[in-house]
Design a binder for these strands. Structure first.
Length: 182
DNA sequence: CTCCGGATTCGT
DNA sequence: CGAATCCGGAGT
């Protein structure tokens, strides 16, 4: 299991290093595992695409808290999205998990943040959950890590954020078939 | 209290 | 390209 210190670092670094790691959720006697192949970094209140840019609210409270917790929210009234909170308490930054390569017990497709949560069974009950826990965490896969090439692109769906929409804060594993879009 | 729109996905 | 579908956040 990744230690809390993994998340207590620069958000771009965490977003890049999460690629290739395993997201693990044990629920109802079933363990689901997916390999993270696509992420986006949301840097904090100064980042106009980040939810924390609208200030500290009930929904975004967990983003302002300590690193290594899940920020889960509902979008467009029907899809859950999952983030990992990064950096020290008060920084209000996070990494959005956008796509998984199926490893174990995933239900259907997992390319795109909404489909990822559907496949893993992630919803409101995991909002604010500790990711340094047996039932819900991110882990280094067994064996030697494969050498991967990382692609940097602008984030998806944040055109409203002015110049922040152009920043290269989306990361994915080059050539991976489970990435949501090229 | 009302109103607007979204870190998406799917079907046309 | 537009609908689905609901709640957070902002304004009255």
């Amino acid at each position: 299991m990744l230690p809390r210190t993994f998340y207590d670092r620069d958000t771009v670094t965490v977003a890049r290093e999460l690629l290739g790691k395993h997201l693990v959720l044990r629920s109802g006697g079933v363990e689901r595992v997916g390999r993270i192949v696509e992420t986006e970094a949301y840097l904090g209140p100064h980042d106009l695409a980040a939810h924390s840019a609208r200030g500290r609210t009930a929904r975004t409270e967990v983003m302002f808290g300590p690193p290594g917790y899940a920020y889960v929210y509902l979008i467009y009234g029907m899809h859950w999205c999952m983030n990992v909170v990064t950096q020290a308490e008060g920084h209000a930054s996070a990494v959005l998990l956008r796509a998984l390569e199926p490893v174990h017990n995933l239900e259907g497709r997992s390319q795109g943040p909404g489909l990822l949560c559907r496949a893993m069974g992630i919803d409101k009950r995991l909002q604010g959950h500790d990711l340094c826990s047996a039932e819900f965490h991110i882990a280094e896969p067994d064996g030697p890590p494969p050498r991967i090439s990382i692609v940097r692109r602008p984030r998806i769906g944040v055109d409203y954020a002015g110049h922040w929409a152009k920043r290269l804060l989306r990361f994915y594993v080059r050539g991976n078939a489970w990435v949501s879009r090229l």
